[in-house]
Every structure is written in C-alpha cells, then in structure tokens.
Simulated assay, not measured.
Amino acid sequence: MFETNGSGTGEPTGNAGGEANGVELETLGDALVLRVTGALDLTLAPKVRQLVDRAQRLAGSVLVIDLTEVDFLASAGMAELVRAHRLSTSMTVRIVATGRITLRPLELTRLTDELVIVPTLEAALDRV
C-alpha cells in the first residue's frame, strides 16, 4: 500500500478527523484501488497523477479511483480522472462517484459520457 498526503512530503495521511487530504493506492486481487480523501484540487491532483502512473506500471487489470471520501472536486481533479482514463491502455479505469460533491460536477461537464462511473467500490470490483 502506498500513502501520501497533499503536502508533497510523502508522509502517511492521518485522516483521523476525516479532514486530511490524501491519496492511497492498494491492491485488491487483480484490481488496484486509488482512494482519494478530502479536496481533489490543484494541491492533490499531482499526487493522484503520480499514483495513477505507478498503478499503470504495476499493471493490474482494473484501476478503481474511489472518490467516496472526496469533499470537493475541482477541475484539476477532473482533469486527472480524464488523463487516467485516456492513458490507460492495459487496464480498465472505473471511477466511484455519487452525490452532488463528486457525481454532479462530472455530470455537468458531461464527463459521465466518457468515464466509467459506478456508485460503489463493490460495483467497481464486481467484474474483476
């Protein structure tokens, strides 16, 4: 498992109060799960990019980007989701997003037409 916080220090995220921004990459069977916590904005987007690149090198069959714990989704974060989707030639990318904080911005920008969006982590892992 790889963890990093949005500060660029590479220190593990605490997330005890649910307020920490962070990205965590873990392996679940043949799938890689990238869990994002806090605000997915210009500060955290480079860490998402770094771990998406790492996930592609690890070459799982599916990369799930879990936005369940995201409390703000900025355009920089959405750009990284699109980048992950477009650059993935060897794996399927699925995005876990629901509600007004994560799903609504993706709908408004019509990214739901391009990205594979699922409501839960279980649904994303269902066909792995």
Score class of each variant (00 low, 15 high):
Met1Pro: 09
Met1Gln: 10
Phe2Tyr: 11
Phe2Lys: 08
Ser7Gly: 11
Thr9Ile: 14
Thr9Gly: 03
Ala16Pro: 00
Ala16Cys: 03
Ala16Asn: 02
Gly17Arg: 12
Gly18Trp: 07
Gly18Glu: 13
Glu19Ile: 01
Glu19Gly: 00
Asn21Val: 09
Val23Glu: 11
Val23Lys: 11
Glu24Ala: 15
Glu26His: 12
Thr27Ser: 11
Gly29Phe: 10
Asp30Ser: 11
Asp30Lys: 09
Val33Lys: 10
Leu34Tyr: 03
Arg35Ile: 05
Val36Met: 10
Ala39Met: 05
Leu40Glu: 08
Thr43Ala: 15
Ala45Phe: 08
Pro46Gly: 06
Pro46Ala: 05
Pro46Phe: 07
Arg49Trp: 01
Asp53Val: 04
Arg54Asn: 02
Ala55Thr: 08
Ala55Tyr: 00
Arg57Ala: 14
Arg57Asp: 14
Leu58Ser: 02
Ala59Cys: 13
Ala59Pro: 12
Gly60Leu: 01
Gly60Phe: 03
Leu67Thr: 04
Leu67Pro: 05
Glu69Asp: 13
Glu69Gln: 12
Val70Gly: 03
Asp71Glu: 08
Asp71Gln: 09
Asp71Ala: 10
Phe72Asn: 01
Phe72Ala: 02
Phe72Leu: 06
Leu73Ile: 05
Ala74Arg: 04
Ser75Val: 04
Ala76Phe: 02
Glu80Lys: 07
Glu80Ala: 07
Leu81Ser: 07
Leu81Met: 09
Val82Lys: 06
Ala84His: 06
His85Asp: 09
Leu87Ala: 07
Leu87Thr: 08
Ser88Ala: 14
Thr89Lys: 03
Arg94Trp: 06
Ile95Thr: 08
Ala97Trp: 09
Thr98Ala: 15
Thr98Asp: 11
Gly99Leu: 04
Ile101Pro: 00
Leu103Lys: 03
Arg104Asp: 11
Leu106Trp: 07
Glu107Val: 08
Leu108Val: 12
Thr109Ile: 01
Leu111Arg: 00
Thr112Pro: 03
Asp113Trp: 03
Glu114Trp: 00
Ile117Asp: 02
Val118Gln: 08
Val118Glu: 07
Leu121Ile: 12
Ala123Val: 12
Ala124Asn: 13
Leu125Trp: 02
Asp126Pro: 01
Asp126Met: 04
